[in-house]
Design a protein around this nucleic acid. Structure first.
Lengths: 108, 108
DNA sequence: GCAGTTACTACGACAGATGAAGTAATTTTG
DNA sequence: CAAAATTACTTCATCTGTCGTAGTAACTGC
């Protein structure tokens, strides 16, 4: 289990990464994070949906509705070019973070 | 430069790691983080001192004063056995976090 | 003697994560 | 066929940690 405070800085990046595979919606994203991380990280619902709001406000994702005649209406999200650029930056930053944090981590 | 939000979850761990080398105080810790990270991460003063307060409250560090007849009085900190245990946990968590986050990071 | 460095402390603002609760529709199961 | 589970969110209030700003205080170098 990974605590939220250590991965916090990467929630937005994780979501964007999954949207690179194509448009998706909250519940699906949530399940994919769970699966891909092998249950090691489970993003809370409220965290996820508040991330969507923030990402959209920043222009990193777009939201839209699909034509659905059944089921509770889903909000779909799609990554924007700006979002891709931001994702790339965060990937670079991740490499740097790994290097830096690793200097303070030792095997005991 | 690493933004504070991505490294946020590791500030306490970074401080504890430096205290493993022996007791130290705020200003010194701050300089060592700066140097060890090759200026890639600079912990803000307020962040650092509030981390000390939190760590002490949690029993992970002890504070004390040294006999000093000159200079502004420094508060020294020393890691406790509890702090060492916590540090070890965080090191394990770091490995897990690296694995998990890496799954969402791609070369583009 | 004044600027710069060392070494903090206090305070208020803000962003992001969270728990709890609620809504609403569909699907499964007993 | 009704109840429980699952899907798919939304709202709201709270908490934690970071940050900007500012101030205090002593020493050090020019």
């Amino acid at each position: 289990m990974i605590s939220s405070d250590v991965i916090r800085g990467y929630n937005d990046t994780i979501i964007l990464s999954l949207l690179l595979d194509g448009e998706s919606y909250g519940y699906e994203i949530s399940k994919r994070i769970r699966m891909l991380s092998e249950e090691k990280y489970i993003m809370k619902e409220t965290t996820l949906y508040s991330a969507f709001t923030r990402l959209e406000k920043n222009g990193f994702i777009d939201s839209f509705f699909m034509d659905e005649t059944f089921g509770k209406r889903r909000t779909y999200y799609r990554i924007t070019p700006l979002g891709r650029a931001y994702y790339r930056e965060k990937c670079e930053e991740w490499k740097l973070t790994q290097e830096v944090v690793s200097k303070f981590i030792r095997e005991l």
